[in-house]
């Protein structure tokens, strides 16, 4: 189907950029709240006592790498390369799952060390912010696996590259949010 649009741009892609713009305000509010409440907790544990920089550096690297896999997946789908589109889609989803694994481990450790979502302001803001981000990653993983299944069904040819591109936009945006979180939450204590 030829679709006329006034700008020549695909409507879904435009809508998705608008959605990402909207998400900026969502994470902007969450991050602002974290920063505003920083150092205001009346009892511990504090970020300095509990945040594990080496571990999170590794998971950050994993998420960054997944973004590379994502662009390679899009390139493979666009040129009709079935094998490599599957390899890279799977890699992206896999690396995303690893990131989630790190986060699950981190949360469990924190709870063992006495930080829950109700302990103090740090706990409330930290878990809400990183939890919202983690939920976004989880949705992304499911989305990527869906695309992988479509690929195995033979329904992810070059004509469907836009579907992958939009999933990629989502994935990279989630990555970008993590870049900000890693800096303002973990490194700037």
């Amino acid at each position: 189907m030829t679709h006329y649009t006034a700008t020549g741009l695909d409507s879904r892609k435009l809508a998705f950029w608008a959605f990402i713009g909207s998400e900026c305000l969502l994470f902007g509010s969450l991050i602002s709240t974290y920063l505003v409440y920083k150092g205001r907790s009346v009892r511990g544990p504090t970020p300095q006592e509990i945040l594990n920089i080496p571990l999170t550096s590794v998971s950050t690297f994993v998420l960054l790498t997944s973004s590379l896999a994502m662009v390679l997946a899009l390139a493979a789908v666009a040129r009709g390369d079935k094998l490599w589109s599957r390899v890279w889609l799977f890699s992206t989803a896999f690396l995303g799952s690893i990131f989630l694994g790190f986060q699950a481990y981190e949360f469990t450790e924190f709870v063992h060390n006495g930080l829950t979502i109700t302990t103090n302001l740090f706990g409330s803001t930290f878990y809400t912010l990183t939890g919202t981000h983690g939920a976004h990653v989880a949705v992304g993983v499911i989305w990527l696996l869906t695309l992988l299944v479509r690929s195995f069904q033979g329904k992810l040819g070059p004509d469907k590259a836009l579907n992958v591109e939009i999933a990629g936009l989502y994935w990279h945006f989630v990555d970008v949010v993590w870049i900000v979180i890693f800096t303002v939450v973990y490194l700037i204590q």
């Binding site: 907790s41 009346v42 302001l121 409330s124």
Partner: peptide
Amino acid sequence: TTFYSTAAGGD
């Protein structure tokens, strides 16, 4: 949680 709890230092 303690977002709006002044006792916990919230505002």
